[in-house]
Simulated assay, not measured.
Amino acid sequence: MDTRSDLQMSGIGRSQGGSYSHVRLDGMSKINGDTDCISLDSNGTMTIDGALQSESVSINGTAKVEGGLNTNRMTLDGVLTIKEHAVCNELLTVNGRLSIGRGLDGEKIEIFGSLKTRNDVQCEVMSVHGGFNIDGLLNAGFIDIKLNMPCRVQEIGGENITVRRLKKFSVIEQFVPVLSAKLQAHTIEGDEINLEYTEAEIVRGNDIRIGRGCKIGRVEYKNQLLRDDDASIGAVHQI
């Protein structure tokens, strides 16, 4: 029989890690040690000096997890730093800024703010309305990127990949290109690929559309290639 108790802290609080039922933190809180709970709700500033495992996580404010994180559902409205690997089995929604020291595995990932990882991101569905910086591979079945911020990744692999820009070109982007809302990648590979405002060395797939604002070094396609007059492509090969 599960005899877990709830953990609640308000103001400035400190507690030991362990197994809990529901964790509610309001204010400045620190938990020393690995924490296993059914739900965690943090409002304010939270530090967990260890790993966190919870069925659901809600963070509003600033938080740091010194170990890894494993959850089914997480909503971030603020800033979260995870030092190790992160797993979100069902739905991850990032409305603020998420930084992960290693990689991220999930089912569905929604990025309305920004995501930074030191390793790969693997999921079934990746929906981006903000920006990301992935120091590895982004691998997903369905990838939909609506560019509002700079996006950078080493490689992208997926079945259906779409990259579009929602906002108009701003004056500041003309003088500070690093702030430009575009995707930068070395390799993009998928079945159906539709790109805008993308810079890549290699794009490889079955059906490919290279739209406006793209600079691609080499395109390798199997069935069909469509290109915008504004797109720049170095070499084209049908495979």
Rank of each mutant, 00 (worst) to 15 (best):
Y20T: 01
S58I: 13
V171K: 05
I109Q: 00
Q154M: 06
D26K: 04
V79I: 09
G44P: 00
A86W: 04
R118Q: 07
A185V: 06
M1P: 13
A51H: 03
G234D: 05
Q8N: 09
G78Y: 13
S54V: 09
T187A: 03
D41F: 14
N95S: 06
V87R: 03
L195P: 08
R4I: 06
L104Y: 07
A231N: 07
T162I: 01
D77V: 07
E201W: 11
S58D: 15
R227A: 09
L7Y: 13
G11K: 08
S39H: 11
I210E: 12
K182Y: 14
V171W: 13
L195R: 02
D191Y: 15
F112V: 00
G213D: 14
I59Q: 09
E66I: 07
L147F: 13
M9Q: 06
E189R: 02
K108G: 00
T81D: 13
Y20E: 03
V236Y: 09
E199A: 13
A231F: 14
L138A: 01
I156R: 10
K146T: 06
I210M: 10
K30S: 06
S19D: 08
G190P: 11
L40A: 03
D229P: 07
N194S: 04
E66A: 03
N223K: 02
G27C: 01
G136C: 00
V203Q: 05
M74V: 11
T162G: 07
A86R: 10
I172V: 13
N70Y: 07
G234M: 07
D135F: 02
E155S: 09
L91H: 00
M74Y: 01
E189K: 03
K222Y: 15
R102A: 12
R212A: 02
V153Q: 04
I109P: 00
G96I: 07
N206Y: 04
D41P: 10
I100V: 15
S10K: 12
A200C: 10
E192S: 14
G157Y: 10
Q8S: 11
L25P: 00
A51I: 09
R209A: 10
S15E: 06
T62K: 04
G50V: 01
M46Q: 04
A235K: 05
E124C: 00
L40M: 14
R218L: 13
